[in-house]
Nucleic acid binder design. Structure first.
Length: 620
DNA sequence: CTTAGGG
DNA sequence: CCCTAAG
């Protein structure tokens, strides 16, 4: 019942982030004044459903499978049911079974059923009925993965293994995907974390996700990318899942329990089932030395800029990174409801909780595992639950927008609308030091997914020597006994693919380029940079790179240029305003001197005898 | 691929 | 750090 309570909280707190930015493809024509007055509030309902889902989850292990089926019967737009209705004993529940314990949030809404999305209901909960749906049979363990997107009328095959797997099974198992990590530490089971988002559970594993912190910086950046980044950070890992099972199911990779690399790879593969190996290699290489120049799409949903954009942008908005959250709520347009009221009818097929990482000892009991997962889950969603709306994979944050304004219309609904659950005030959890971009993955997989790979020993690495810093070779994760898997369920925005003539799935590579982890320059690096610039000037960053940072694979000449820029700025502001590791004034002075010198030099344009070295000029 | 700058 | 227009 505690869950119920939280559910309520979540409800109250529900609020879609504001989205200042206009729709990618403002289609004025789409604005039918007729609908302007309509405000969609069904999201609230969705939130309610989600909450309900939680509730179900919380009780699933001990209560009946119809915990909430006693609600309204009519107009139940969404049905929810604990996947694992039958209450199996702990002994019986294998890891897989646990995973299987996802929650079936909803079924395809019968055509006849319609959700009057526009009518704000004072009591959202009443609009959703959480009845029990068809039972999930034993084989469900093989399909615990949620159905990502289910198209009723448009059978779109995105071809990624993960997806197709799902489609194979008629049973749309929505729900929670569990990902567990076995380790020596048990996630604390205290309840202090309630309401604090997943802050609690995560800290247990500081090495899992490290970098996201700085991502939280820009708060009002309406840019989709940034938004994504933010969410990735705050809401990261919310999908619980038993990696091994997942791997075996969705990836070719043979599941090897306790094999970190394998599992990880599996996940990666899963995520990029259609990712060509070749591309992986390339990607890796790129990331290794230089920033990937491809547009980054957020977790899961990614595509090469050229291809994806070309394919979808022109049609109905550019695909954007989607939030890292789950979004396996499938909605669909009701074919026969082209009614003039232009009401959007959508059926929610399933929910999936965002990815989540938990740590639990291998020796823990299944029961404790369940408990842990449950706790982690509730802690995540417990705080404030809310629903995110995705249109073309892009989050729509402006609640005031009408559907049409957001690009949600009868014509495109089924292909563009998506939802995602997200813990409210996304708490920035203690990010775990992400693996270095140079990290060499066991197999050729998109680097992006390694973001949370454990990187022991990388924490306290106060580099004093330029050497060490310049050549910060990430230590390879060493967790033989840890089962680590990731469950980044790609939130594939419904592409307009179905509506376009573009040949479906043609080299639909997805490059999940992730923002590089922030790696503040150390004093030593600054020193090296300054020295190099003094000698080479400020217009030869490549040379600077080669000269002083040739071994620092993670520093590109662009980085150096940027750093110089900031150094110059830093040198000009008062020491009080400076942040981060303090740079010796001496260096800053040199920065200013060199900057002034080279600026002048550049201005002089005198290359008669070649640019004199600053050093020479200064008599150094 | 590099630069140079704005974001 | 990212993204990109220019060269």
């Amino acid at each position: 019942m505690v869950l119920q309570k939280r559910l309520d909280y979540g409800f109250n707190g529900y609020e879609v982030p504001h989205t200042p930015r206009a729709a990618r493809s403002p289609r004025k024509s789409a604005f039918k004044k007729k609908n302007e007055s309509h405000q969609i509030s069904s999201f609230d309902l969705l939130a309610a459903v989600a909450g309900k889902l939680l509730l179900e989850g919380g009780n699933s292990s001990s209560s009946s499978n119809n915990a909430s089926s006693g609600n309204n019967d009519d107009q139940c737009a969404v049905k929810t049911e604990p996947l694992n209705g039958r209450d199996t004993t702990v002994e019986e529940e294998t890891t897989n079974n646990i995973a299987e314990r996802s929650f079936f949030v909803s079924e395809i809404l019968p055509k006849s059923h319609e959700i009057q999305s526009y009518n704000r209901s004072p009591s959202p909960l009443t609009e959703f009925h959480f009845g029990s749906s068809s039972g999930v049979t034993s084989d469900s363990s093989e399909k615990f993965e949620t159905q990502e997107l289910v198209y009723e009328d448009t059978k779109i095959d995105n071809s990624d293994c993960y997806r197709s797997e799902c489609n194979d099974n008629k049973s749309m198992l929505g729900g929670l995907n569990f990902e567990a990590k076995l380790s020596r530490n048990v996630v604390a089971k205290d309840e202090n974390h309630i309401g604090s988002g997943f802050r609690k559970p995560i800290p247990q594993n500081p090495s899992l996700c490290s970098d996201d912190i700085d991502l939280l910086g820009k708060e009002n950046d309406d840019d989709g990318e940034n938004l994504s980044a933010r969410y990735r950070t705050k809401s990261f890992r919310s999908t619980l899942r038993i990696g091994n099972h997942f791997a075996s199911k969705y990836c070719k990779v043979s599941p090897k329990p306790r094999d970190t690399t394998t599992v990880t790879n599996s996940d990666l593969d899963m995520k990029h089932g259609y990712y060509s190996k070749k591309h992986c290699l390339k990607s890796q290489r790129l990331e290794r030395n230089y920033p990937i120049k491809k547009r980054r799409y957020f977790d899961g949903y990614t595509a090469s800029q050229s291809e994806e954009n070309a394919k979808t942008e022109g049609l109905s908005g550019s695909p954007r990174k989607t939030s890292g959250f789950l979004s396996s709520i499938a909605c669909q347009k009701q074919p026969a409801v082209q009614s003039r009221d232009s009401h959007v009818k959508l059926g929610i097929k399933s929910f999936r909780v965002p990815e989540l990482f938990i740590e639990i000892p291998e020796t823990a009991t299944v029961g404790s595992l369940k408990r842990t997962v449950l706790e982690a889950l509730t802690s995540i969603l417990g705080g404030e639950l809310r629903i995110g709306v995705l249109v073309h994979g892009k989050k729509v944050r402006d609640d005031s927008k009408i559907l049409l304004q957001s690009g949600i219309s009868l014509d495109t609904l089924s292909d563009t609308l998506g939802f995602c659950l997200e813990p409210n005030p996304p708490q920035s959890t203690k990010p775990l030091p992400p693996e270095d971009s140079d990290y060499v993955r066991p197999c050729n997989v998109p680097h992006t997914l390694t973001r949370c790979l454990p990187s022991p020993g990388k924490h306290a690495k106060p580099s004093n020597s330029v050497e060490s810093d310049l050549d910060s070779k990430p230590s390879a994760p060493n967790r033989a006994k840890t089962i680590y898997s990731r469950a980044l369920i790609p939130v594939r925005p419904l592409h307009v693919q179905a509506l376009t003539v573009v040949p479906p799935r043609k080299t639909k590579r997805s490059v999940v380029a992730q923002r590089r982890i922030r790696r503040p320059f150390s004093v030593a690096e600054v020193e090296a940079l300054v020295q190099a610039v003094e000698r080479l000037g400020t217009g030869r960053w490549r040379d600077v790179k080669l000269r002083a940072f040739d071994n620092a694979k993670h520093r590109t000449y662009v980085d150096l240029k940027d750093k110089w820029k900031t150094l110059v700025h830093t040198a000009r502001i008062s020491p009080q305003q400076r942040r981060g590791e303090p740079v010796p004034q001496e260096l800053l002075d040199r920065v200013l001197t060199a900057h002034a010198y080279w600026s002048q030099q550049q201005g002089k344009h005198l290359l008669l005898e070649g640019p004199k070295k600053l050093e020479t000029s200064l008599g150094l």
